Computed example of a mutant assay.
Amino acid sequence: MNRLLSRLSLDPYLLLLIATVALASVLPARGGFADIAGGAADAGIALLFFLHGARLSRAAIMDGARAWKLHLSVAALTFGLFPLIGLAVSVIPGLDPALATGVLFLTLLPSTVQSSIAFTSIAGGNVAAAVCSASFSNLAGIFVTPLLTALLITGRQSGFSSDPVVTITVQLLLPFLAGHFLRPWIGGLIARHKKVLGYVDRGSILLVVYTAFGAAVIDGLWSRIAFGELALIAGLSLAILALVLLAGAGLGRWLGFSREDRIVLIFCGSKKSLATGVPLAGVLFSQAQVGAIILPLIFFHQIQLMVCAALARRFAQAERLEAP
């Protein structure tokens, strides 16, 4: 089964997300169980960012500072070009307001870590720079994404949290800093149990998705959104990704980056993190609206994996043909 999914460039975790959405659509959490699930989801978000902080090494931060030109270029795509495209797309007439907000929100998110590094490695790029760039992006996203959300979405979306600064500080920033400062004592433990903690990460996200979609279904999500709008979201996701990939390739050539660094710019600059986006949405938006808001992110997540997997293989093949 895993081999078949790999050939189809399907992320097995996406299937779990789809199953979670289906479960929440049929059996949403209600009453006291909804309160318990919501509290567990909040705790899971805090744990998720604690582990993010514990995994980020200070050596990676120091090494990354040396390639500042490349990292600034990735940031320009991630937090500059992407949001501009998101603003343009979010005003398309006829698109459900919550989905439009979701499209804009996904463009404000940081880059992924694991897939950016993996695709850079497959394509023959600068893996060390990809590790630093993706880590920097995720670290910046804790501050930049809420700020951009406040600037670009507040006032347009009534579901935005009324007190985001306190919520972000307590639920995201403090756990992240605690994990990072405890890294000298717990870093080895986390490294030894990386696989198990990966299940904790993904389980926390699935719980957030379940509670969010359950609340959205109770609020009438599927009665408002038509199949045609979901198809439109898929098409928009593909178009957004294509624009950023082309921009990354052009920017890398214009700045005179080496082939290896251009690959880093292309893959790190074109990704959006589902692992960061779902918890942030759970913190920044009301529970009833999170379900619709993260739908575009789920679509984009799978599309970026499929497209970038094919692109990475093409880069690798080109490198083998050019080798003496």
Rank of each mutant, 00 (worst) to 15 (best):
F79Q: 02
R183V: 06
L48H: 11
V113C: 10
S121T: 13
N138S: 01
W185T: 03
G159S: 15
V74K: 03
A123N: 02
L108G: 05
P146H: 06
R156F: 06
S111F: 00
V131W: 00
D96I: 04
S115A: 08
L147I: 11
A123D: 01
L151V: 13
L70F: 07
T120P: 00
F50M: 02
I92E: 06
F136Q: 01
K69N: 04
F181I: 11
A129C: 04
G86W: 03
V166R: 11
T107C: 15
H71Y: 04
L177F: 13
R58D: 09
L177G: 04
F160C: 14
G80N: 05
V103Q: 12
F160T: 05
H71Q: 13
G155Y: 11
A60R: 14
G53Y: 09
L173I: 11
V113K: 10
G179C: 00
P184R: 12
A150L: 08
P97N: 12
T101H: 12
D96H: 12
L172V: 14
L81R: 14
G124H: 06
L70Y: 03
G102Y: 00
G179L: 05
G124S: 07
L173W: 07
R66I: 03
L139F: 14
L151M: 12
A54Q: 01
I92M: 14
S57R: 14
L95A: 13
A88F: 07
T154I: 04
G155K: 11
G86S: 06
A60L: 14
T149H: 05
L152Y: 13
P146Y: 07
I186L: 11
A134K: 01
N126F: 06
I168H: 07
P164L: 13
L172W: 06
P175R: 14
A129Q: 05
A54T: 12
G141Y: 03
F136P: 00
L87V: 09
G159F: 10
T145V: 02
A100D: 04
T149L: 03
G159L: 15
L177I: 12
S133L: 08
A129L: 01
I122G: 10
R183I: 13
P184W: 09
T167W: 09
L189Y: 05
F82H: 09
G125Q: 01
I142Q: 10
A150T: 09
L106G: 01
A98C: 00
R183W: 11
T167K: 15
W68Y: 09
S116M: 03
K69W: 02
L104G: 06
T101W: 01
V103C: 08
A128G: 10
F143H: 03
S135D: 03
G188I: 00
R66Y: 03
G125S: 06
A128I: 01
V166G: 07
P93D: 07
L172F: 04
S73G: 13
V144M: 08
S158E: 07
A65T: 14
G125C: 00
V91F: 11
F176T: 02
T120L: 00
F143L: 02
A65G: 15
L189F: 04
P110V: 05
A76C: 03
A130D: 12
I142E: 15
L148I: 08
L174I: 15
S161G: 01
F160I: 15
